[in-house]
């Protein structure tokens, strides 16, 4: 009798293990999804805000230009850039040895086109996932690590709508597979 019970228990344990094993092999785990997002987006990556090197008109009422000027003035106050005003045009002049915060985008003639202000490094964390047809929808968060000294200045000056793109925020990734290719799109919430 005891022998039969033991065999029965053994069968149950084996079946359960096999079920668990096959599930872990064939089902897409959150870790795998995370790996796909990291590869495709990619993560970790710099959190950069780009300003054109020449701001056309300081008196213009264009909101974007006004915002760039505000940011440029704040960065000049921190000693990260220099501003040169020529008539109504303001030119951004980078300061030597600030590359870890202000990246200079040069063209093929090495003329400064824009500067990218590095706020920190974006990392990601997937929290939950579900499938919807051929799409896998992953919810998670984007973390901002290694913040630079320009981070707080920028996040204070950016309008509410833009802040989420440059700050830690909940994110949704949509993974879609077509013809053996993976396409990932990212939405900040």
């Amino acid at each position: 009798m005891t022998y039969k019970v033991l065999i029965f228990m053994k069968v149950i344990v084996l079946t359960a293990t096999m079920l668990l094993f096959t599930n872990s092999v064939f089902a897409e785990t959150i870790k795998e999804v995370e790996r796909i997002i990291r590869t495709e987006m990619p993560y970790p990556r710099d959190d950069r805000y780009t300003i054109p090197a020449i701001l056309p008109d300081s008196k213009s009422t264009d909101k974007k230009n006004q915002l760039y000027l505000k940011i440029a003035n704040a960065l000049e106050g921190k000693g990260l850039i220099k501003l040169i005003t020529q008539g109504s045009v303001t030119k951004i002049q980078p300061v030597e040895n600030t590359y870890d915060i202000v990246h200079q985008n040069l063209d093929q003639k090495y003329v400064l086109q824009s500067v990218s202000i590095i706020l920190g490094v974006f990392r990601m964390k997937a929290i939950s996932m579900h499938t919807q047809g051929d799409k896998t929808i992953v919810s998670g968060e984007r973390l901002l690590m290694n913040k630079t000294s320009a981070c707080d200045i920028l996040l204070k000056l950016l309008p509410e709508g833009e802040v989420k793109d440059y700050s830690p925020s909940p994110v949704q990734w949509i993974i879609q597979r077509r013809n053996g290719q993976v396409n990932v799109t990212e939405k900040t919430q």
Binding site: M41, P42, R45, D46, R48, T50, Q108, S116
Partner: peptide, 14 residues
């Protein structure tokens, strides 16, 4: 595309 996302570059022509 990955590099453009990594550096937050809009103009990818180069």
């Amino acid at each position: 595309e990955k590099a453009a996302r990594y550096w937050n570059i809009q103009d990818k022509s180069n």
